[in-house]
Amino acid sequence: MIDIISINRQFLIMAREVANSKSGEIITGLPRPVLDRLATLSLDQIEAIAQGVGVSLITFRLSEAELTRLTALQEGQRAAYSLAVVASEGR
Score class of each variant (00 low, 15 high):
residue 85 V to A: 09
residue 4 I to S: 12
residue 4 I to P: 01
residue 51 Q to R: 14
residue 88 S to H: 13
residue 60 F to V: 08
residue 79 A to R: 09
residue 17 E to H: 00
residue 40 T to R: 14
residue 46 I to V: 08
residue 78 R to V: 01
residue 5 I to T: 02
residue 35 L to W: 09
residue 23 S to Q: 14
residue 14 M to Y: 13
residue 84 A to D: 13
residue 51 Q to I: 07
residue 66 E to W: 00
residue 10 Q to T: 05
residue 1 M to T: 00
residue 73 L to R: 08
residue 2 I to A: 07
residue 67 L to R: 11
residue 81 Y to E: 07
residue 57 L to G: 04
residue 57 L to C: 09
residue 19 A to Y: 01
residue 62 L to R: 03
residue 73 L to N: 13
residue 63 S to V: 10
residue 21 S to K: 11
residue 34 V to D: 03
residue 73 L to I: 14
residue 39 A to C: 00
residue 77 Q to M: 14
residue 50 A to D: 03
residue 22 K to F: 11
residue 71 T to I: 10
residue 4 I to E: 12
residue 54 G to C: 08
residue 41 L to A: 13
residue 23 S to H: 11
residue 15 A to S: 13
residue 46 I to K: 02
residue 20 N to P: 02
residue 35 L to H: 05
residue 45 Q to I: 07
residue 72 A to L: 14
residue 80 A to Q: 14
residue 23 S to T: 02
residue 4 I to A: 12
residue 51 Q to C: 06
residue 16 R to N: 06
residue 36 D to N: 13
residue 7 I to S: 06
residue 76 G to K: 11
residue 52 G to Y: 07
residue 10 Q to N: 11
residue 53 V to P: 14
residue 28 T to L: 01
residue 64 E to Y: 02
residue 80 A to Y: 01
residue 40 T to G: 08
residue 58 I to G: 04
residue 64 E to G: 10
residue 86 V to A: 08
residue 16 R to A: 05
residue 74 Q to E: 15
residue 86 V to N: 04
residue 16 R to F: 03
residue 45 Q to E: 15
residue 60 F to Q: 12
residue 44 D to T: 11
residue 69 R to Q: 15
residue 60 F to E: 09
residue 56 S to R: 13
residue 70 L to Y: 15
residue 71 T to A: 10
residue 2 I to N: 07
residue 26 I to M: 14
residue 39 A to P: 02
residue 8 N to V: 03
residue 87 A to P: 02
residue 86 V to G: 03
residue 85 V to D: 03
residue 41 L to M: 15
residue 82 S to H: 02
residue 15 A to W: 00
residue 3 D to C: 09
